[in-house]
Computed example of a mutant assay.
Amino acid sequence: MPRNPRKQIYPGYEDLPAAGRRGPLVRLWRIRTELLLAAALAAFTLTLLDATQQGRWMPLILLSSAISVPAVTRTGRNWVTSHVWCVISRHRLQRVCLETTMHTRAGRIPLVLWITPTSRGEKALILTRAGICAEEFEAYSEEIAAACWARSTNVYRHRTRSQFVVVEIVRRDETPGVASPGLDRLYGRRAWVSLRPDFEEPPDLRADVALAQAGQ
């Protein structure tokens, strides 16, 4: 079976530059989570140093408890682990765009606007650039899954705004007790269309779509 032309890493046109042109604002945007964590850690350290120098131990006890108590609970550890995977997946998605043809002639890659944990892995909301579409992400779905060290990926396009794409990274079977993804709460489950014709929507989602179509 011939390989999808969209998945050719070295296309016929040779003037497509390597995606590596990044300004300072772009670099800061891509490491925003790490910068926030570093700032929080610095503030935490300065607060502890100031409290110990003045002989005030209550702030030290309160701050230590705020960190240690969630760390010893299963819910707290799962929360930390799921959000660490979100950071990893965001960087791996950006790496796939850099290493494939999912960047513009100017070397710009799609923007990962938001990534959130789900019961099966992560979901990333992506804003595509001119010349890149949701079908591009579907064509590279296996490369994305391998780059994110995941089981598989699902790609969804917005029904009315095709520049928005959701990439679902599936790592495991559905885990009970995990809160519904923020992307579903923000845009609604009816707003997204799977790019796989053989993909079977969940029964509740099919019911929502049928009600929406009946109301039109």
Rank of each mutant, 00 (worst) to 15 (best):
V193R: 00
K123Y: 05
S82I: 08
E136N: 06
T73R: 06
A106G: 15
L205V: 10
R161L: 02
P59W: 10
N154G: 01
A39I: 03
A18F: 09
S194H: 12
V26C: 09
D15T: 01
A18T: 11
W192K: 02
R92P: 02
R151M: 04
N154I: 00
G131N: 01
S65D: 05
N4G: 13
R32S: 12
T116M: 01
P70Y: 10
A39V: 09
H103V: 04
P24R: 13
T75F: 10
S162T: 08
R77C: 13
C133F: 05
W79T: 12
R30M: 07
T45H: 07
V193P: 00
E143F: 08
L37R: 15
R27V: 14
T116S: 04
R120S: 11
W192G: 00
R32F: 10
A210L: 15
Y187C: 11
T45Q: 04
Q94N: 15
V69E: 01
A146V: 00
E99N: 12
A71R: 08
N154W: 00
L46C: 03
V170R: 01
S65H: 04
Q213G: 11
L205Q: 12
R196Y: 07
R157S: 02
A38D: 09
W57R: 03
R171G: 05
R190K: 07
R196Q: 13
G55H: 09
W149E: 00
L25Y: 04
A179H: 05
A39D: 05
F137L: 02
H83T: 14
H158Y: 01
P202K: 11
P5Q: 03
E174G: 00
R105C: 12
V165Q: 00
L41H: 10
I132S: 14
V166A: 02
L62W: 05
G23T: 06
L113A: 10
M102T: 14
R74S: 15
P117T: 08
G182D: 07
L127C: 08
L127P: 06
C86N: 13
E99G: 12
V209L: 09
V155I: 08
E174Q: 01
